[in-house]
Design a protein around this nucleic acid. Structure first.
Lengths: 234, 234
DNA sequence: GTTCCGATGCGCACAGTGTGCGCTACGGTG
DNA sequence: CACCGTAGCGCACACTGTGCGCATCGGAAC
């Protein structure tokens, strides 16, 4: 009798008290679940199953599902690296590396973009603040006045977030189609024939390269604009 | 006896057959509901209530909740205006107006940003395609080769989407706090005192103006970058 | 050792979700 | 008049987040 419906008072399991929940373990498990199964798969019950815990046990360590997601989002922001600017011209390499690092992070964790649009989420985690302030310092050191540097940080992150938002939306569409990027693009072009006229059509033999190239193009636009502004100043 | 639990066969209401559902009416009601109460408030039951219809009645005209949202998203993309470029230098004014129009649309319908990150949504509606292709034509007419024009369209929309994503997240936080932008900003600065050091702190007497200024700054960066690229070419 | 107490985990329950299924009653065609 | 495709709906199912109160733990106080 594995599970007696009326448990006898004697001869009862030591209850096993699995291992001790805590915020750190919960956030780590949630991150793993999100990466492996996506945003929709994260429910308190499924998360509890992974931790050998009941559905509501996590509420002792985390007030909300929303707050939990907020914690996980800040956790992945820790992966974003903003290198220091080496030399007076190094700001550009530093900012570019930060942008790439942010994009790579979002591509590693495709669910983040689905969460950034949601309401008050992730608005002030320590890791996000740290990254922003480092980039702010880099741009300030390059010669931008504080207000411009602030706006420039916003512009760069906005560009990256916007880009990866559309990238991950496309990639998750690809994922759930079961086909590859090339095949899905080709079959979509059959349905919407007008797409064949767009220049992107020629690129569909290597869509990943096309995405990468587009990201670099747009990033260079922003950084060129910044560089011109700096030159004008000196 | 308003609602007899066992309705007698005789003396029964004419059943009233409200008015006739159809896709257009459903999408319009969903848009109204989203604008008035936000993304979370849109459930098939609440939408049905607004249409004097049952919870599952809409499924005759729309296959999914997700598909319904997709339809509504494309509906609001119809509000985005991409003016033609007047004169050979007019591309910049046209692109800037398109970007502003997109931002204004997203600020009028704050729930869109929460939906753009979600999976396959809104990837190919007619109104979105129309706007993209118009902007593509404007940039192509300015002298960019097709591949660059394609990337430039992506870059501009990515920048705008990224910007409004963070703007609407902030604004919905403000909305649910019950305070104004200034007050909420001030109270957040009390909790995280390090924010006081950032240059944004000085702007908090008019946050809306600060947002507007930041948007223009970043947009100019992108357009300056494009302009430099065009000049280099001629 | 015994006794206590705060903290932790959990089962239950509630209100709510999207949506498949099959019945009913309508509007238009023969 | 009979008929039938179809629009709408009620029901049911599996699922969601989370409040509540109970059981049971580890450790501190005596």
């Amino acid at each position: 009798m594995a599970e007696p419906s009326i448990p006898s008072v004697w001869a009862r399991e030591p209850v096993k008290r699995a291992s001790g929940l805590n915020r750190e373990r919960i956030v780590a498990a949630a991150l793993k679940l999100l990466d492996e199964e996506g945003l929709e798969a994260l429910s308190m019950r499924s998360l509890g199953k992974r931790l050998d815990a009941g559905a509501t046990s996590m509420y002792r360590h985390v007030t909300n599902r929303d707050e939990l997601i907020e914690l996980v989002v800040d956790e992945v922001y820790a992966e974003v690296e903003v290198p220091d600017a080496a030399g007076s011209e190094g700001w550009r390499a530093s900012a570019a590396a930060a942008a790439r690092s942010l994009r790579d992070m979002a591509l590693r964790h495709p669910w983040v973009t689905g969460v950034l649009g949601q309401v008050g989420l992730s608005y002030l985690g320590p890791n996000l603040s740290r990254a922003s302030e480092r980039l702010l310092a880099v741009l300030g050191g390059a010669g931008l006045d504080p207000r411009e540097a602030d706006h420039a940080v916003s512009a760069i992150t906005a560009y990256v977030v916007g880009t990866v938002t559309s990238e991950t939306a496309w990639l998750s569409l690809v994922a759930e189609s079961g086909k590859g990027e090339r095949e899905l693009l080709a079959s979509l072009q059959q349905v919407h024939e007008h797409l064949l006229e767009t220049p992107a059509a020629k690129e569909h033999n290597d869509p990943a390269r096309h995405r990468e190239e587009g990201f670099t193009f747009g990033l260079d636009l922003v950084l060129d604009g910044l560089e011109a502004r700096l030159r004008r100043r000196s």
